[in-house]
Computed example of a mutant assay.
Amino acid sequence: MTAPIETTGSAPEAQPETVPDGVEKGRIEGRSLGQIAWSRFKKDRVAVAGGVVVVVLITLAVFSRPLQALFGLDPNAFHQDLIDPNTSLPTGSMGGMSADHPLGVEPKFGRDIATRILEGSWVSLVVAFGATLLSNTIGTVLGVVAGYYGGRVDTVISRLMDTFLAFPLLLFAIAISATLQGGAFGLEGLPLHISVLIFIIGFFNWPYLGRIVRGQTMALREREFVDASRGMGARGPYILFRELLPNLVGPIIVYSTLLIPTNILFEASLSFLGVGIQPPQASWGGMLKEAVNFYQVDPQFMIVPGLAIFVTVLAFNLLGDGLRDALDPRSR
């Protein structure tokens, strides 16, 4: 039988036998949703490994130019002394691998592959993150507005989503990129190419997140906390951005980590087709394009940038899967 609680004028204190074994006597602190999600995420070793790879890739991309300046690297430096003039292939074994060129050199020009991989990393990630930010901003705003207000607003936005989804995105991207290669909007060269890719990929991909946000908003708008806000006189914009959006952060983060690798692949595809990042600027898709003529005699030239894309996409996908399970255990 539980011992009675004595009252002596001070706050009641639980008797020793009422405290469960293994729990220290005193106040038990609760955990936030973020702390609970983090504890779940840490248990997924595969997702943690993917997250570590993503952090390393982002760090290398951010410090790409400083690292090149520090070690005196030039992604466009030709090393013709390392190229056989008869075959246009690197001299030596393993594609010209050496201490100075750990991943070898390109056929024909002799440019260092490792330096070009490092240089291409920031291009791919800038395009992928920029396009994801643009598409998420448009998709989130229109999706939450359509899901909350419903009616004609929902109908108009939903038909707009269907219209954008009907566009043949790849053909449309090729046409726009090819048209704007010379210069536009006061930009030219690499800034123009990156801006065009971010706009094309981000502006035409927003309906995918928009549909997800719309469905989640339709489920949330009937919850008690939304009714309580309405009862206190809160207007639509306040409910949208102060009540609904904080509850949509989880799905948006998860979808973003899964959308970034898709955008990386799309940018590489456009560069491979010759309408993305233009040479001599290094890009992973451009390196694959240049390797087409040499992959039978020098497969390393194609394998290295291919592995860079593969590892990056895989790491982001593993991270996204882990975040999805951590933020929504019911999805397991």
Score class of each variant (00 low, 15 high):
Y208A: 04
I138L: 12
Q216R: 13
D81L: 07
Y208G: 04
G286V: 09
S98L: 09
V249K: 12
N247D: 11
V275C: 00
L323F: 10
V249Y: 12
V62K: 01
Q35A: 05
V53Q: 05
D74E: 03
F294V: 13
I200A: 01
P66I: 00
T257N: 06
V19N: 04
G143M: 05
F172V: 12
P279M: 11
A146N: 01
L57R: 05
P107E: 03
P299I: 09
H101G: 04
L190E: 03
D227I: 05
T155Q: 13
D321K: 10
T87L: 05
T155I: 14
S331A: 15
V53E: 06
A282S: 14
Q181M: 14
G9Q: 00
A114K: 00
L197I: 08
G231Q: 01
L170I: 14
I194M: 04
S88W: 10
G95F: 08
V54F: 03
T115G: 00
Q68P: 00
I28N: 11
Q216Y: 02
M97S: 12
N136L: 13
A228C: 05
T87V: 04
M232A: 15
V54L: 03
G50M: 10
G320N: 02
L171H: 10
F185M: 07
K289Y: 11
I113H: 08
G95Q: 06
V19T: 03
L273W: 00
A166Q: 00
P107N: 03
F272L: 13
I36Y: 07
S271K: 06
L197S: 08
